[in-house]
Design a protein around this nucleic acid. Sequence first.
DNA 1: GCAAAAGTGTTCGAAGTACACCCATGA
DNA 2: TCATGGGTGTACTTCGAACACTTTTGC
Lengths: 243, 243
Amino acid sequence: MAFDLAGYDKYAYEPFAVTVDLAVLTIRDGALHVLLVERGQEPYAGHWALPGGFVEPHESAETAARRELAEETGLADVTGLHLEQLRTYSEPGRDPRMRVVSVAFTALLPHAPEPHAGTDAARASWLPYDAAGPLAFDHDVILADAHERVGAKLEYTCLATAFCPPEFTLGELQRVYETVWGTTLDRPNFRRKVLATPGFVEPVPGGARLTGGRGKPAAVYRAGPATALHPPLLRPSREGRPA
Amino acid sequence: MAFDLAGYDKYAYEPFAVTVDLAVLTIRDGALHVLLVERGQEPYAGHWALPGGFVEPHESAETAARRELAEETGLADVTGLHLEQLRTYSEPGRDPRMRVVSVAFTALLPHAPEPHAGTDAARASWLPYDAAGPLAFDHDVILADAHERVGAKLEYTCLATAFCPPEFTLGELQRVYETVWGTTLDRPNFRRKVLATPGFVEPVPGGARLTGGRGKPAAVYRAGPATALHPPLLRPSREGRPA
DNA sequence: GCAAAAGTGTTCGAAGTACACCCATGA
DNA sequence: TCATGGGTGTACTTCGAACACTTTTGC
């Protein structure tokens, strides 16, 4: 911002609209799901799109994202919510109507509340990630970027607990990794790795719970204070992953 | 973008200005340097700031960043340039004059051309990273975020070659890591690690060069086609790094 | 010869992989 | 008692850290 604003006529240009788009991910029935809204108007009427909306004059993009998420999910309390800026999409022409610069966010939810269709959307719904295309505008790209980012962050952060309820078992945590990565992991090794990272999870003293209805009851854990994972928990055998 | 633009008056709100800010990093004399401009006007007249400017109606933020960089450095050819979106800063009040949403970029240069002060800046200069504060606006935060991002990406991508000229020695590449991370690395292990990653560097057939004026001439390498680094080259002994 | 920088070899221990095996529960 | 999921043990391999050593240059 080294430019001169003194002599700048703020109305001289065609104005930019600044919006937020949300890639809201959760795990439902062992599969990655994304929150989508069905568009009511042209363009792309009847197509699915990521939820989002305008950044209002008084708020930051982060605040706008949190507000839009609360409106779409009906969740006023955003407990257990992970919200993170993904990147900004600013290609001219990405919205045919006017110049829209969109700050995209990724949100991770531990549970999947039934969404409320907003005022401007025909309806809102959780769709399986693999069945979620093609989307309106450039939202396919945003969604794919979000998935890739989340997958990468699972490797070197403790982000996986954001997909879990406040108390969870190690089996549930492992299923988060397996669902997002689309792989299977060795259970004993996963267990050791997680427990060897100080602050990743902490045991809940008296807790034990049946998970699949059968089998031995599993010990219950909470998310710990750590955010980083050192050494990282690498995805198995992928050569030449993109940066 | 599920909102309704049909009935939206694009002039109803106070318009947002959309700008780009650039954290342009290079290595000079073994120290990390950043390209800064001295502001000519209030606010922050006389303070150093990151170069940047408006996104014009016809261009994306990426295009605007590339244009601004060319203007500031006088480099029309952007060979060997790495330009990457960092994040978007949108807090209301970050510019006291009007609502400015800024898409920040990190650029890495192998060499340090003498900068040209733009039309709106008093002067432009390379400053050592450690001596570069306090900056105007929230640019201290942007610069710190850029440094952290670059440091993290060195671990698991082949980004380090962006700081090197087209042909370089392994000692020069190692100095990139050491300069950005502020650590020292074991030379034999670094060497093995880099050469064991297919496509990170490729030998230049006849090349050999003296680097420090003394010592054995070093073999010369080019950047290879790989972008990712698997397994990663982790920073030594840092516990609980932030995500 | 000496200092400086490149390059090679080797050792040791930590960490990851791939298993086999036992435990507790519901049907 | 069997299937299912949780939990432990262990051998093997790979990788990284540390450091000794050789090579080639300029002074």
